[in-house]
Nucleic acid binder design. Structure first.
Lengths: 180, 180
DNA sequence: TCCTTCATGTAACTAGTTACATGATTAT
DNA sequence: ATAATCATGTAACTAGTTACATGAAGGA
């Protein structure tokens, strides 16, 4: 049984407290989403796999006819999760940005189009930062410092990107050369 | 025939001049790699697909028994590529960082382990920035400004990340609270 | 001689997304 | 009524990685 990062998202969310697959998805969407997105198509099968491996256990929490299954970590699950968290091994980092790809090839474009492109990129990152800031208070009002810091990382990162593109757009508009 | 970002990496590299699949891979590894990685397993089949669609054309460039196939853009290929480059539509941005995931869940770890973790992350990003800086002169000594700017983006981004983690590690070491 | 780079390719696999299906409950 | 949210799930698909295989040319 080998576990990938997505498995640990599931285990980690359950380490915070018992919850359903639906809950895990909602939580992930407002927390880990910006650096590790997960979908239902992964979560539900993964929960079953983890249960099969004895890392989580399910219990029925249906109210009336409304079905609901709550999962919680087993002792083994907690141990496996802690081992992963504590392991300082450097794991892969992946970035995929189609806009940046266009920018890379933008020398073939008229300057005006490039400027418009840069504006769009700057706005995109600003919006992403804003989106994160929207649940900043929520992150601040809970006792887990790292969750808050990771959110600040995301905000800071996207603001930095936004500024980079805005500055480049301005430089180009003013006909400033690239300083090499 | 629908083209994904990887198809455009291939087309884009050919727009810079005719080259082989091998060449495309080498070039991508020192340029687009940090925001769009490609592998042989994608490139070779993609070249055939693009040729089938009439966007590229191949010619044999074997020297003696040493085989080599060079591809170049057709007029149609150039047109399709330019249309993509010029289209300002905002496309998906994806980040996946397992270390950040660990950090997110690090509240369960002893502070000492978290500090070690932060150091490792800071170093990782510093190394990535250094790696990019290694081919900065190459990027500077060619007439395509955007390729140089995208490289500077990568260097700046990773330096920013490195600094963020280093500062956080220092703050925690000094017992400084998170400012909320 | 042997190692590295040049050069091409595929098969099997892994991970993740999307679209769809179902149906109950709660709020407007 | 009806729209939104709660809740679970799967099948088909898409994209990308890894491991392997082959072999020539060039440099140490």
């Amino acid at each position: 049984m080998d576990l990938g990062p997505t498995s640990y998202v599931v285990l980690g969310m359950l380490a915070l407290g018992p919850r359903s697959g639906y809950d895990i998805k909602q939580l992930a969407d407002v927390s880990t989403r910006h650096f590790w997105a997960v979908s239902y198509g992964q979560i539900y099968p993964e929960l079953r796999r983890l249960e099969g491996a004895g890392l989580v256990r399910s219990e029925d929490a249906s109210r009336g006819t409304r079905q609901r299954t709550i999962y919680h970590l087993t002792a083994k699950g907690k141990q496996v999760f802690n081992a992963w968290v504590g392991d300082p091994a450097i794991k892969k980092l992946e970035l995929r940005d189609e806009m940046l790809l266009k920018l890379f090839f933008a020398d073939a474009m008229p300057r005006k189009d490039t400027a418009r492109h840069l504006d769009a990129m700057s706005r995109r990152h600003h919006l992403l930062a804003e989106g994160l800031r929207a649940h900043e208070p929520m992150a601040a009002n809970q006792p887990h410092r790292m969750k808050y810091e990771v959110m600040r990382f995301g905000i800071g990162l996207h603001e930095w990107c936004s500024d980079f593109y805005a500055r480049l757009a301005r430089d180009m508009e003013q006909g400033r050369e690239a300083k090499r």
